[in-house]
Nucleic acid binder design. Sequence first.
RNA 1: GUCUCCGUAGCUCAGCAGGAUAGAGCAUUCGCCUCCUAAGCGAAAGGCCGCGCGUUCGAAUCGCGCCGGGGACGCCA
Length: 563
Amino acid sequence: MDAKQNLANAIAPLCGMDASAILDWFEVPKKAEMGDYAFPCFRLSKVLRKAPAAIASELKEQLVLPSGFSKAEAVGPYLNFYVDTASQAGSVLQKVLSEKENYGSSKIGSGKTVCVEYSSINIAKPFGFHHLPSTAIGNALYRIYKFLGYRTIGINHLGDWGTQFGKMITAYKLWGSKPIDDYSIRELVSLYVRFHEEAEKDPSLNDTARAWFHKIESNDPEAMELWAKMKDNTIREVKVTYHRMGIDFDSWAGESFYEDKMGAIIQELRDKGISKLDQGAEIVDLSEWNMPPCIIVKSDGSTIYATRDIAAACYRKQEYDFCKSLYVVAYQQDLHFRQFFKVLELMGREWVKDCTHVNFGMVSMEDASFSTRSGNILYLDDILQAAVDKTYAIICEKSPDLEDKQSAAESVGVGAILWSVLYNNRIKDVSFTWDKILNFDGETAPYVQYTHARCCSVLRKAEDFDFSSPDASLLDDPYAQTLLKALDAFPAAVLSAADKNEPYVVSRCIMSVASAFNKFYYEQRIMADDPAVKAARLALTDATRQVLANGLNLLGIQAPERM
RNA sequence: GUCUCCGUAGCUCAGCAGGAUAGAGCAUUCGCCUCCUAAGCGAAAGGCCGCGCGUUCGAAUCGCGCCGGGGACGCCA
């Protein structure tokens, strides 16, 4: 960034412009051989009334190159600048190797808090593949913000309230055969499925279910105990899966947590004249903003998710005083978020501008749809396990001598699954097929992890060799240069990922690092005969290892040293 | 019907505060392990960047209109 400023300062006087005016004209050429920065002269041709190409070559003649640059070249209408590779290489290497696991981090978030609501599973329901995007993206954002110095609050907004628990209890009372504590999620789900089958034949079961939920709401001891135990069971069980993915939450406050916090919201909406009665329900009319009304209280007097989300937003502001509050929730709920954000705005909560719906695409199966009721479910844990099993088989084939195959398989298998939803723009839909999810070739986590392991392997072989004072000017081949540029791009990628709430910016960045390293590795011998060259290349390898590890860590993916 | 998002290679996607011959991976075909992990590297082939109009010196990128697809649209979340 000072590089551009220096160039602007040097060029501006030659064409009678202000340095600040031409600063953002600079661009980075697509191809490395065209230099590191380019100054297009099209716009100057209007002012100077000359052909752009002529301006470029005249500028080149008159220009005094600022320090840090090795040459300038006029190519057609462009003036291309090449940075001095030795000093550039030296500073990148030095920065990575001295900052280590903090390379790419920042203090911009110091003293500020970001809330991230993600994963948000339902109690006594499957933790399924369709939860993967929210879970993986949310966790990556959580880690990225933390890396940038923010205090981060990860919130699993549990679906732990509603008539489905009346159904669960009804089913348990009718068909349960052991203490509720002994029921796994899968067993609870089969009770739930059975309830829906039987309720087809005997609709009165639905009344029983409603009655049981009413008991929960009115604090009936038996109902509360069953509900609480189902909730505890579920949390205990899903924590195992979360742990596999390196995830933990700071808050598990779900829907039930806000039961006693909605009354004040409803009252405030009435008092301020924001809500009104319509068809027996209390609504906020949003037609002025071209939106359907937001329902606050249903005609039967019960609350609804909008009410809960409003209460939750207010609670989080009060409790955490966030500077940003993110909701990692599928785009099906776009309208819902626009509605309740608008209601918060009408309530005078100016901080609602800091709330963001981080939406993502639909998850589907190729030729079926997910449905708990029909029992058509893909458990996330089964998919993780399938990936780990496949990885284990690959390791046995490719690295039969590896000592701890199981832990490497776990890192790589789970990493591959997480990566599948962290490599593309969030908004892209995800359609599940076993072939796709178990493909570890090409632009995948295993590729990046393999590259990391490769770096570690080389470094192990050089354990006794001192490369702490590398001569970066020896890294002047194009492969090393491309790699250095990729390493240099990492800190900006982290910032951009946070700015856009898009983890794929980090994924793409470390993918380009891995790709550049593999080309470098193939073309250049790292353990070169010349000790000075060897030292420089080992330092570069160590820096690569570090950046890959940092990037994978931000995505919540392990970086194994051997695989 | 209204609102909203998306449309780039056979497939999955980058690129879109406008700029130099549009990039990857997968799949296909063909090469590269006497040398640091071949889960790697290379090559070939593959594109009216959905269509049209406009703004501009310049549009995959910005605006408008079509077409095609996803999603949402009052008492589920």
